[in-house]
């Protein structure tokens, strides 16, 4: 905790959202229940395109739950019930006409624990394009695999062993493989659920560099436990506490001049 606080102090966050940025995802009044227990309380949040939006907060605050609303991953949990309005490019993603399978192709996801498929590196990346029928033929598929691996900064390390199992890579490489897998279907948004929590500092650094590169082309929403990470990679930060979105603003403002005392306490390491 103290290390994080120090990290924040050492590097003054400068992240700001460009005023011209369009809103990619707009959430209004999102409530979510797991059975009888309410986990999210009327969350309003705008996620700008071509920026990194970080969601921070103590464990169990609902930040991951909210993230999973954005690609309807919560649909797979029987007891979860979502209410409210979430729009992707102005279109209600919970509308009847929206197919969650199609939505997840547009809104990709990287998970907390690297979870490559127990198949070859090539197959891991090629799987998405293949099921969506994006690539016309083997050559186009090879092309997608190579570009995705390059974008994920993994190409140089795996180009000679594409046939080897993805599970044989190191943790950081696995996570980059998962990012390549997500990129390969050419999504518009990439959701990242604590992507570095299982990685060492060096691997974390590589992923953070990658996030900063990716934001040029994608809208990225990242959930993180590490405030220093939020400060380093994001331009907008949202602070969640007990299922409520307490405060949201440009990262530079949230970390230097929080308005809410709860945000203040959390950022300075007094709780959480």
């Amino acid at each position: 905790m103290s290390e994080q606080a120090e990290g924040v102090r050492m590097s003054r966050p400068v992240g700001r959202v460009d005023e011209r940025a369009s809103v990619k995802i707009a959430a209004r009044g999102v409530n979510l229940w797991y059975g009888d227990k309410q986990a999210l309380f009327s969350v309003d949040l705008d996620i700008p395109d071509n920026h990194v939006t970080a969601m921070i907060g103590p464990s169990g605050c609902g930040k991951s739950t909210f993230l999973r609303c954005l690609n309807r991953m919560n649909d797979t949990i029987d007891s979860a019930r979502v209410q409210g309005d979430i729009r992707l490019d102005g279109q209600d993603i919970y509308a009847k006409s929206i197919d969650p399978v199609q939505l997840r192709a547009r809104v990709g996801m990287v998970f907390q624990k690297p979870n490559p498929f127990p198949k070859s590196i090539y197959e891991n990346v090629a799987y998405g394009p293949r099921i969506h029928g994006i690539a016309a033929g083997k050559k186009a598929l090879d092309e997608i695999v190579v570009t995705s691996l390059k974008k994920a900064g993994l190409w140089d390390e795996v180009k000679d062993r594409l046939d080897e199992p993805g599970t044989g890579l190191s943790g950081g490489q696995q996570q980059r493989l998962c990012i390549a897998r997500a990129i390969a279907v050419n999504p518009e948004v990439i959701l990242m659920d604590e992507p570095c929590s299982a990685l060492d500092p060096i691997a974390t650094d590589r992923i953070e560099q990658l996030i900063l590169e990716l934001k040029e082309n994608y809208c990225i929403a990242i959930v993180t436990h590490s405030m220093s990470q939020a400060a380093r990679v994001s331009q907008r930060t949202a602070f969640f506490h007990l299922g409520v979105l307490v405060e949201m603003g440009d990262t530079a403002d949230i970390f230097t001049n929080p308005q809410d005392p709860r945000t203040q306490d959390y950022i300075t390491g007094r709780f959480g």
Binding site: T76, V101, G108, F111, P116, G128, C178, A182, V185
Partner: peptide
């Protein structure tokens, strides 16, 4: 995590 990974790239 394997199911989530597959669903996450848009598998049915």
């Amino acid at each position: 995590s394997i199911r989530e990974g597959a669903l996450g790239v848009g598998a049915s």
